[in-house]
Write a protein that binds this DNA or RNA. Structure first.
Lengths: 153, 153
DNA sequence: TATAGAATTGACGTAAACGTAAATGAGCGG
DNA sequence: CCGCTCATTTACGTTTACGTCAATTCTATA
């Protein structure tokens, strides 16, 4: 039942390329390659974002899976939820023009961009307020002669 | 033992300002005044951030509680956790110089400021990447809509 | 073949800040 | 005295992205 016959398996941890052009990778390598944990990969699978083949119960990731993982990580980096990423990836059709997928991605991207800009504005705001109150606190520490000071809003 | 005598309490829902100088406020007014929900106020109390008086089971908020709530909301705005806010407020001593409180606040503020700046950098990064991939997607959409031949326009 | 090291599934935990539901009570107008 | 509304308490649910065991099987190598 195994794709790799016991006698053929020569290398120890790195059993690279039983057949030419396949490049099947197990979960440990996959994790190291992309800087995620095993748990994360299983989690993504559980959420329907990845679909590695199985050799028995062992997950084997193809380059398709690697491409998907790259997309997932990019999506996460720019702040998409896994749900969004899945929704966009589920629209992928290797035999079509993928216009719908691209449109959806663009639409979500525009909204996400807006969110990010809003967030940045909030953070800038917070930085200002925090800096201001820090100045106040510093002042209060300097003027320890006058006890009571009120907090302005 | 009630601060507001039963005879004084006239209006049903809106019992505004019965006596001068006291300004005891119930949870509903408090919530409206500061734009939070009833649940939030009870939650803060549960976490030890607020300690309103009780008239029976009814919460009555003094201006001290209002000052504390203002601080909480400011803290949240600049990104402190409720735990941090509590820790800082718990150090408040009306009869002391509060040097320790101020030092702690300043310390936490510096760290929070660093976090905020790091966050802003991440967001800027995300915005760049997102913008880039949006350009790519737009290009792909253009190429799909123009059948093969034409290139520049 | 024994055994160490991978990998598997499943269940439970975490953080933050509440939301929501259920059951109960208390006061007031009519 | 009935119902209405507001309030309270308690407990469980939500969201997101995993972390952390635990028990167990699988695999590879000496």
């Amino acid at each position: 039942m195994k794709l790799i016959s016991p006698g053929q398996a020569a290398a120890n941890t790195n059993d690279m390329s039983s057949e030419a052009g396949e490049e099947l990778v197990r979960i440990g390598e996959m994790a190291k390659k992309y800087g995620v944990t095993l748990r994360t990969l299983r989690f993504y699978e559980d959420k329907g974002l990845l679909n590695p083949q199985r050799d028995g119960s062992t997950r084997l990731y193809t380059r398709r899976d690697r491409a998907r993982l790259k997309l997932i990580l990019l999506g996460r980096k720019v702040g998409f939820s896994l749900r969004d990423v899945k929704q966009m990836m589920d629209l992928y059709d290797p035999n079509g023009s993928n216009t719908k997928q691209l449109r959806l991605a663009l639409d979500k991207s525009e909204k996400q961009l807006a969110r990010l800009q809003k967030q940045r504005a909030l953070i800038d705001d917070a930085i200002s307020e925090l800096s201001a109150s820090m100045s106040t606190v510093r002042q209060m520490l300097i003027e320890r002669s006058t006890p009571q000071a009120s907090v302005a809003s």
